[in-house]
Every structure is written in structure tokens, then in C-alpha cells.
């Protein structure tokens, strides 16, 4: 299923037999064991699982933040190396991190965060672009020169999303982008992400432990347990509660239980 190099795979992710480990020798711990995954261009794909199931590790391996992996990862039809990513890769793939309190430099203003990102990607009309980016994530110009400590959690996450959008990527890796926020803000951020995807035609690969969030955002879902994908299902099947694997059924039951 993976590794087809079609011409129209510029916004797509293909992962084949991915193994990721931490530590060496006897302390070596397999975090991801043989994951296969295909995300089509423009698709929104959800990875669900409890903490420690290896779902964030998959994202970090794609982004190049974890270098001890084996298997094949292809982004936009181009196979990635173990370490090091090209400039073109960073222009295609961007990531939004889980904790907006940790993902912004405490001594840099919003203006500096976005300005430096744009400068690194070689844009010249930086001032106009910063204003546009802030607009697109629903922050006015009044937030431009603030430091992170002058922003709320939701506002910080909007800045982090603006930073990820700055290089005009095709693919966004979302690592539990709402789990550190409170419920009302979660909905705002999820709606913003949905709107941005339909506006810009982005591909999302989203990690979450919350089936409700993934059901709202994603068309295709993979359930991970202990480093393996145990089941893959479409959102329609999920809404009909048609799961074959007992673990998926358990997840569905417990999230339904939370709603009732």
C-alpha cells in the first residue's frame, strides 16, 4: 500500500514498516513497531491511542526530531533520510506542538517568532505577511508585539499555528494541538484548524487521545496500541460504532460513556 510514487502525491505521506526505538543496547525500547500508514493529499488523518502508544513518536520521526528509526517514510513521494531534512521538506511539512506554553520562546515577541520564521524561508515582504498570518489565525495586530507571557493558552496556540503556516506548507503535523487547552478554547482552535484546511487545502496528520476531537476533525482514523496500529477505520464507521478490534470498541464505548 505504501511507496507508490504517483505524480499527485505532493501533499501525501506514505509510511511503510516504521520502527522507532529509544535507547541503545539492553535499554533499547521499541516505541513504534511496524506501522504502515497512507495519508492522501488533502486528507485529514487521525492517530488515536492512549499515552505511550507511540502516536506522537510517529509524528516526530516524520518531522526529523527523532533520528533512531527504520523503515520508509515518504512525504510528497520523496523518501526521507534517517537524519537531516531538506529546506524543501520544511517548506512542505510543518508541525504544531502539544503544549503552547512550551512551544514559544519565552523571550521572543510574536513579531519576532513569525518574522524569523519568514526570514528563514526566504520571504521578503515580511511585515505584510506577519499581518496576514495573524489575521488568518484570528489574532489582530494588537497581539503582534506581545511576549508569550502576555497571551492566553489559546492565543499562544494560534501563534504556534501561524508559525506553522508561515512557510505555506502542504502538510501539518498536529500533535494533540488542543489537549493543553480548556474545553471552550479547544473548540475554537479545532474550528480554526478545520477552516484553515478547507481554505488552503492542507493535509492533516493529527494525533490525539480524544476520539471526540478526532471524530470532529478527521476522515480516516487509525487506532494505535503499544506501538502498533490495531485498526484503521473511516469516520462513518466510527460514528456507527462499527469497530472490529476489541481495543477500538473499548475506546469507543468509553468516549461514549463520557458523553452520556
Amino acid at each position: 500500500m505504501a511507496n507508490e510514487m504517483n505524480a499527485d502525491r505532493t501533499g501525501a505521506i506514505d509510511i511503510h514498516d516504521l520502527h522507532v526505538w529509544f535507547g541503545v543496547g539492553a535499554a533499547r525500547n521499541m516505541a513504534v513497531k511496524g506501522v504502515n500508514l497512507t495519508v492522501d493529499a488533502g486528507q485529514s488523518y487521525g492517530l488515536v491511542g492512549e499515552s505511550g502508544s507511540g502516536k506522537s513518536t510517529v509524528l516526530r520521526a516524520i518531522a526529523g526530531l527523532v533520528e533512531s528509526w527504520d523503515g520508509t517514510i515518504a512525504v510528497g513521494g520523496e523518501t526521507l533520510k534517517q537524519r537531516g531534512r531538506s529546506k524543501a521538506f520544511y517548506k512542505t511539512v510543518q508541525m504544531v506542538f502539544q503544549d503552547p506554553y512550551a512551544s514559544l520562546h519565552p523571550r521572543h515577541t510574536v513579531d519576532r517568532v513569525l518574522g524569523e520564521t519568514l526570514q528563514l524561508h526566504g520571504f521578503s515582504d515580511i511585515d505584510a505577511r506577519i499581518a496576514r498570518l495573524l489575521d488568518s489565525v484570528g489574532l489582530g495586530g494588537g497581539f503582534r508585539f506581545r511576549y508569550p507571557h502576555q497571551l492566553s493558552g489559546g492565543q499562544r496556540q494560534r501563534v504556534a499555528i501561524a508559525r506553522a503556516l508561515a512557510p505555506e506548507p502542504r502538510i501539518l503535523l498536529l500533535d494533540e494541538p488542543t489537549s493543553a487547552l480548556d474545553v471552550s478554547v479547544q473548540a475554537e482552535i479545532l474550528n480554526l484548524l478545520s477552516d484553515l484546511r478547507s481554505e488552503m487545502g492542507l493535509t492533516y496528520l493529527m494525533v490525539s487521545h480524544d476520539l471526540g476531537v478526532v471524530g470532529h476533525m478527521c476522515e480516516q482514523i487509525a487506532v494505535m496500541q503499544q506501538g502498533e496500529i490495531v485498526e484503521e477505520l473511516g469516520v462513518a464507521e466510527m460514528r456507527r460504532l462499527q469497530a472490529n478490534h476489541p481495543y477500538t470498541q473499548h475506546l469507543l464505548d468509553s468516549s461514549l460513556g463520557a458523553i452520556r
Binding site: A63, L65, F97, A102, S103, H105, E116, A160, A166
Partner: peptide
């Protein structure tokens, strides 16, 4: 920390990360 990961994902080199 995540903000260093984030700037690495923008393609920043080690000299820029260390000094800035």
C-alpha cells in the same frame, strides 16, 4: 524544548539556534 524543535523545523542551523 518545543520552541527549539519548532525553530529547527523552520530549517534554522546550529549557529543561529545557539546565538539567537
Amino acid at each position: 524544548s518545543d520552541y527549539i524543535h519548532a525553530i529547527r523545523l523552520q530549517g534554522a542551523g546550529p549557529v543561529r539556534i545557539i546565538t539567537r
